[in-house]
Simulated scan of single mutants.
Amino acid sequence: MYSHISDAIKKPHLIKLKKNLYVARFESMKIYSTLFTVKKLLERKIINKNSILIDSSSGIYAYALALACHKYKIKCHIIASKTVDKNIKSQLNLLGATVEGIDFAGTLKLDQEYRVKKVKNIIKENEKYYWMQQYHDDIHYEGYKEFAELLSNEISSDDLILVGGVGSGCSTGATATYLRENGKKVCLYGLQPYGSVTFGCEHVEDPEIIIAGIGSAIDFSNVKHSNYDYIDWLSFDLCRVGTLSLMRNHAIFAGLSSGGSYYVADKLNNQQPNKPCIFIAPDMGYRYVDDVFLSDKIFCTEPNEPKIITSADELSLPWSRIKWSREEKIHLNKFKNKKMERV
């Protein structure tokens, strides 16, 4: 029996969709990270019961942090993205979190920059505040060791494919890291939206994309580029197709990055049916009801395979892929300025 709801819902349901295609379906994936991080910070006496934990979030992390703070009876303060809807805000408020937005910034890049700037200003003015730095502190990696162990125990093969959103780099990057430490040969496909700076796509716009969560408009220190074997960029429309297909085909109600990951994983499974392929569905689909599930927008053309690229100027919608080959971040300069070895 669990003593707090966060412990009960942090683990995913691992579901077999068809031969060698699996989904790790979370209610909220980042609970792994926040529970571990808050506990360790308390044990190390970096924070105490009088601390106020603060961070910027587009939704999933805010909910996870509020749950962890509720469990450990610590106050938290969220600087919320404009993508945080009223449903999440109401839950955060009831969990005791202080939720604060910013004035409309015009773009998601400015939205992220202004939120981080606001966090920095707040912690300067009050010594009780502790900045969690989900985008920059490596401690957030450690929470996913338990998830990696769960996958290691459930998937007997030592050779597998893992697909999921890059985001802050902790969920997919950390999971692959610990799986590899456990002896698994993991080929990691990281999902990015067009417009994200993390892997050099800031110059390609997708007018429909909700970048929050799987991409970034500012630099994230926690993204270790050397964790990723391939990077796939998907358009909003293609992620939407995947999200709706995931519900229709498998009755799984999940978010936009889940749909994009499913789209990629399903194609990979068709190409390599004898190798286990696991994709991550990090949250439920509630905040996408209006823009995804109830939208009457006409579907886009669905390619069966991505456009294979070797440089940034080749990027184009709706689906591009590069073989990243676990290169360091410095590889970005080469990607942006000249062609790399073709896949």
Results as ranks from 00 to 15, higher is better:
Leu294Met: 13
Pro273Gly: 09
Lys297Leu: 07
Gly259Lys: 01
Gly259Tyr: 01
Asn274Thr: 14
Glu302Phe: 01
Lys297Cys: 03
Ser295Lys: 06
Thr310Leu: 03
Pro276His: 13
Val292Lys: 01
Ile280Pro: 04
Cys277His: 14
Phe293Trp: 10
Met284Glu: 11
Ile280Leu: 15
Lys275Ser: 09
Ile278Lys: 07
Asn249Ala: 00
Ser258Val: 05
Ala265Lys: 04
Pro273Ala: 15
Ala265Arg: 03
Ala281Pro: 05
Val289Gln: 08
Thr310Cys: 01
Pro276Phe: 11
Cys277Asp: 08
Tyr262Ser: 07
Gln271Lys: 14
Arg287Val: 00
His250Cys: 06
Val292Phe: 01
Gly260Ile: 05
His250Leu: 05
Glu305Pro: 00
Ala312Phe: 06
Leu315Tyr: 04
Ala312Cys: 10
Phe279Leu: 06
Arg248Trp: 04
Asp266Tyr: 03
Phe299Gly: 01
Arg287Leu: 05
Leu268Ser: 01
Ser311Lys: 15
Ala265Asp: 01
Ser257Gly: 13
Pro282Arg: 08
Pro276Gln: 12
Ser258Cys: 12
Ile298Leu: 11
Glu305Lys: 14
Ile252Leu: 10
Tyr286Pro: 01
Ser316Phe: 08
Ala312Gln: 09
Ile252Pro: 02
Leu294Ile: 07
Ala281Gln: 08
Ala281Thr: 11
Ala312Pro: 00
Asn270Gln: 15
Asp283His: 14
Asp266Leu: 00
Asn270Glu: 15
Tyr286Met: 04
Val292Asn: 05
Asp291Gln: 12
Pro276Gly: 13
Asp290Pro: 09
Val264Ala: 02
Ala254Trp: 02
Ser258Asn: 07
Pro273Glu: 10
Asn304Gln: 12
Gly260His: 04
Cys300Thr: 09
Gln271Thr: 13
Phe253Tyr: 13
Cys277Gln: 09
Pro306Gly: 02
Lys275Gln: 13
Leu294Thr: 09
Ala254Cys: 09
Ala312Ser: 12
Pro303Leu: 09
Leu315Arg: 06
Ile252Cys: 03
Asp291Thr: 14
Asn270Ser: 15
Thr310Tyr: 02
Ser295Pro: 00
Asp290Arg: 14
Gly285Val: 10
Thr301Leu: 10
Ser257Met: 08
Glu305Ile: 15
Arg248Lys: 14
Pro303Ala: 14
Ala265Pro: 02
Ile308His: 02
